[in-house]
């Protein structure tokens, strides 16, 4: 596999470019921060991309640990899910890799055997994108789930108490707070 060798050789450069293009998907002033702040606690977003993108790349051309891959996808997608305004925005970072690899291997790509391998590689990128999309949906569902759960927890003990033994009517004052929820379109 010639492609694997090349990818391993250029790994550093590819990863740097990938990281940079993900960071550059943020507004200008934010991307410098994501790139330069080294402290993992002051810069969790940049840190996660730095740590997890290499796992994805490695998996694309070698056969790694499945749980490691799942964890990497999970960490990355969680962040993009809450930041993006559209699903496409959340998952598009995977597709960036295609162009980056083509750019990095430009001089070698005249080789037709390599081209064939690249097509296979890109199919894997597409597959990864679909996995990322699945994960995005999971994250979205999780958000709905925790939203519902949070509302429940706010008065968890109240419900329990009422269910357990409270009988008789509760006196009602002016109904405040009921209507705002109704005209939401979320």
């Amino acid at each position: 596999m010639k492609l694997v060798k090349l990818l391993e050789q250029r790994r550093e450069a590819i990863l740097n470019e990938w990281f940079d293009s993900v960071a550059e998907s943020y507004p200008l002033d934010t991307s410098t921060y994501l790139k330069n702040q080294a402290d993992q606690f002051q810069n969790p977003v940049g840190h996660t991309f730095k740590e997890r993108l290499p796992v994805l790349l490695a998996e694309l051309y070698s056969n790694g640990d499945q749980s490691l891959l799942a964890e990497a996808i999970d960490d990355l997608v969680k962040i993009r899910t809450v930041q993006a305004s559209a699903p496409s925005q959340a998952v598009a970072f995977v597709f960036l890799l295609k162009n980056i690899v083509r750019r990095q291997l430009k001089s070698e790509l005249t080789d037709s055997r390599l081209q064939k391998e690249l097509v296979e590689f890109e199919a894997k990128v597409d597959g990864l994108s679909l996995m990322v999309f699945d994960q995005y949906m999971k994250c979205q569902n999780k958000i709905f789930e925790i939203r519902a759960k949070e509302v429940q927890m706010r008065s968890a003990k109240l419900l329990e108490q009422v269910n357990k033994r409270y009988v008789g009517p509760v006196s009602d004052g002016p109904d405040i707070g009921g209507e705002a929820k109704d005209d939401s379109n979320i």
Partner: peptide
């Protein structure tokens, strides 16, 4: 204070 530096590259906090 407490800048965790990762990898071989030394990054200075601006």
């Amino acid at each position: 204070r407490s800048v965790v530096v990762e990898g071989p590259r030394i990054l200075y906090s601006p």
